[in-house]
């Protein structure tokens, strides 16, 4: 089911993200999804995230769908040229997978196949445009599609706490003009900074899901602050995690922090998107504390 329908109904849309394993055994992933993710509206499946080779996003989306979940197919432009991207979009539509999140993708060198060829034939903007074209029964080569054209809920990402926020807003506008119908943000830890961004972005009138990561410990926060683009974790949060290491380790402190950020930003977004990083088990508690369960 298209998440755009949910936004239209005025629903506060909650999605979570799962990363496929490096291998073909996904029983554990599906079990975990059944145990912890039944309360969410949709599940993103990452596409060889951080340029680390894994089981394919499309295949995992199909399995999730067969198990009664509503998948969001993440597509990066790093590994496929326009022919392969268009073809995979058709494949997704044939399987009834109709939520697609368009991303440019991390550079190849950052992952576990640093010698791989970076493709970037299209990018997040032109991929959105391509989806729109397919919806009209055309492809990028100018040819007609056979029969009923596919339709998608077309998603994109934006990084509200990027130190290049002006460039991010321009790109966001370009994505909307290219067809983006909803946004998921990079993980937010600084509510005030996010709200400032929202005050500028709301004029576009396109629903935004607040990106959330449950922080695990101070070390993880420092690492993200230093190495992950668009992440800015205030010192206060890091102190909170340091205060009681056992509570942090059990995920109690992190869940409290994440729930608080959601509550602070709830009036400034149309949903949340939770990147679990292996902590799927924290989601039910988080949703409850945030008042979303």
């Amino acid at each position: 089911m298209k998440v755009t329908e949910l936004f239209k109904e005025g629903k506060f849309v909650v999605s979570a993200e799962v990363g496929p394993p490096k291998g073909i055994n996904i029983d554990k992933m599906i079990e975990e999804a059944k145990e912890y993710l039944t309360g969410v509206d949709a599940i993103n499946v990452t596409d060889n995230q951080s340029s680390v080779m894994r089981l394919g996003s499309l295949a995992v989306c199909k399995v999730l769908k067969d198990n009664g979940f509503n998948p969001i197919f993440q597509m990066t432009c790093r590994d496929r040229n326009r022919i392969a991207l268009e073809s995979d979009l058709l494949s997704a539509a044939m399987f009834g997978i109709d939520n697609v999140l368009s991303l440019t993708g991390d550079y190849t060198k950052l992952g576990d196949h640093p010698g791989a060829k970076p493709v970037f034939d299209l990018d997040s903007v032109s991929l959105l445009y391509t989806m729109g074209l397919l919806e009209q029964g055309k492809d990028l080569g100018g040819q007609d599609l056979d029969g009923e054209p596919p339709t998608f809920a077309k998603g994109a990402v934006v990084s509200p706490c990027s130190d290049s926020v002006d460039a991010q807003l321009v790109k966001m506008e370009r994505k909307i003009k290219a067809g983006a119908q909803f946004f998921q943000t990079q993980a937010i830890f600084d509510s005030e900074r996010y709200i400032k961004f929202y005050e500028r972005a709301k004029e576009f009138g396109v629903p935004i899901q607040l990106g959330i990561i449950v922080p695990k410990n101070a070390g993880m926060c420092n690492f993200m602050n230093n190495n992950v683009a668009g992440i800015s974790i205030p010192a206060g949060i890091i102190e909170e995690l340091k205060a009681d290491k056992e509570r942090a380790k059990a995920g109690i402190t992190g869940t409290e922090i994440a729930a608080r950020i959601i509550r602070e930003c709830k009036d400034y977004c149309q949903g949340v998107h939770i990147m679990t990083l292996g902590w799927e088990s924290k989601i039910p508690g988080l949703l409850e504390q945030a008042g979303l369960a």
Partner: peptide, 16 residues
Amino acid sequence: CSKSLVNGQCGGAKNG
């Protein structure tokens, strides 16, 4: 641009 992008910035820039 390292990715030769033609439609704007990717999400990867940090401190510019």
